[in-house]
């Protein structure tokens, strides 16, 4: 199943946006995981930005970057938001309040606790009415989101925005889910046309018996750069790095993504025709 990649957004330590990160991801410049400033997420109306959580701003920032590259009107584009934990910072605040005698939950905090919070804020910012799906598949949330997005492109025959994001988990929840760095990436995926610049071919197959998800390193998705590889293993959204690196390399490549212990995605990148 083929889709074109018409726009990419990226935000992570040392990877401040897609354009400035291409050389690093292609292996032409060393990766230095410097902290990134809190994203502007300029498309959010000021009121919404003030109330929004960090994860909303990260997700909206990369979504906006990808959409701007594509030149498409965001109101026409269905969305898929893939995140392992969603609003972990909100859960922390909420559960602290619920552990007090008074349990005085703020209405805003409550409606920000849903897994589709970032998707909802994106919809409000763009005033879009297209479908929007928020999903999770633990460490393989990006793979699941990619399949949902590609299936939607095929079904609707129109571009789809895929956003994947997970932020550093605050204490004390970090003991249960030790994600130490934030990561967000977005892709505008479209039905291929003659002048598409990057084609992604997606295949799904059964993983050979005996291979286990306990050892994600076995797969062809392992990255050459040690620091990038640590980031990939630390944050579920960073499981999109092999795809990002393959696109940045601007050469035909195939990478694999584990999807649970018994499915695997084969992603073939064909940059060309430009």
């Amino acid at each position: 199943m083929d889709v074109a990649i018409d726009g990419i957004g990226l935000l992570a330590p040392g990877l401040p946006c897609w354009r400035e990160s291409r050389a690093v991801l292609a292996g032409d410049r060393p990766y230095q995981p410097t902290a990134v400033p809190s994203p502007e997420a300029a498309i959010l109306p000021p009121n919404e930005r003030r109330r929004s959580s960090d994860s909303v701003r990260w997700a909206v920032q990369v979504a906006q970057e990808a959409i701007e590259q594509s030149g498409l009107d965001p109101r026409d584009i269905p969305t898929v938001f893939a995140s392992s934990g969603g609003e972990m910072l909100v859960f922390d605040q909420l559960c602290r309040v619920l552990a007090t005698e008074e349990r005085r939950v703020s209405p805003t905090l409550f409606h920000q606790s849903v897994h589709n919070t970032a998707a909802g804020y994106w919809g409000i910012a763009t005033t879009g009415r297209q479908s929007s799906t928020a999903l999770s598949c633990y460490d393989d949330s990006f793979a699941a989101g990619l399949v949902e997005a590609v299936a939607t492109v095929r079904e609707e025959q129109r571009p789809v925005l895929l956003v994947t994001y997970d932020l550093a988990v605050p204490a004390p929840l970090d003991e249960a889910r030790p994600i130490t760095e934030g990561f967000a990436a977005a892709f505008v995926l479209s039905p291929p046309v003659r002048d598409s610049t990057v084609i992604l071919r997606l295949g799904l197959e059964q993983a050979p018996a005996g291979e286990s998800a306990c050892f994600p390193e076995y797969l062809a998705e392992r990255l050459a750069d040690d620091a990038l590889e640590r980031l990939r293993l630390n944050n579920p959204a960073a499981r999109s790095l092999p795809l990002l690196c393959a696109v940045a390399a601007a050469a035909p490549r195939t990478v694999e993504l584990a999807w649970l212990e018994n499915q695997r995605l084969q992603l073939t990148i064909e940059p060309c025709r430009c």
């Binding site: 929007s132 799906t133 928020a134 999770s136 699941a144 399949v147």
Partner: peptide, 11 residues
Amino acid sequence: LEGPAMVVSTA
């Protein structure tokens, strides 16, 4: 089951 799996969470 060993097929594709995901959880949709849109409230």
